[in-house]
């Protein structure tokens, strides 16, 4: 879906464990301005945190000299978020290849699954500098891909 807004909000966060605390309030303040439900806001925030964690651990390899850049494109009908780091992810970190049934007792491997399930589009690419760029897109009138009962 092509959205018409040219508005863009960018932030860069140092690749340090203690800097993750800045992620939530910044993202929450942006998401609060959008026409989405509390539940969608929450789920988008989880997807962002997954992308950010991958950037921190796998892309930037926990290197404190690097940064993670987040760019939000809030449109009228959708929100696009880009998360860029300064590394190259392992080749098996492909969101499209995540099986529906992950190893239930595995310690890791759920981040890509959550991103895939919680937003309408999620994919990794390479930016102009040759590093990772994650795109997350949420359509405001979307329905969740699956219905989960409580």
């Amino acid at each position: 879906m092509k959205d018409t807004s040219n508005e863009r909000i960018s932030i860069s966060i140092p690749n340090r464990m203690e800097s993750i605390k800045w992620l939530y309030p910044v993202c929450e303040s942006i998401l609060e301005e959008l026409p989405i439900s509390d539940k969608e806001r929450h789920m988008i925030l989880v997807a962002i945190s997954e992308g950010f964690t991958n950037a921190f651990q796998h892309g930037n390899q926990k290197d404190p000299q690097t940064e993670i850049k987040l760019t939000f494109y809030p449109g009228e009908k959708s929100l696009k978020i880009l998360i860029e780091d300064e590394g190259i992810l392992p080749i098996d970190m492909n969101i499209n290849n995540v099986p529906d049934h992950v190893d239930l007792e595995g310690i890791s491997g759920r981040g890509l699954l959550l991103m895939r399930e919680l937003v309408d589009e999620a994919y990794y690419d390479i930016n102009s500098k040759g590093f990772n760029i994650l795109t997350l897109i949420t359509n405001f009138e979307k329905k969740y891909k699956k219905v989960y009962s409580f």
Partner: peptide
């Protein structure tokens, strides 16, 4: 709030 890191901790 919980994400995959938190879930991994619970499984561990």
């Amino acid at each position: 709030f919980i994400n995959s890191s938190g879930l991994g901790t619970l499984v561990s």
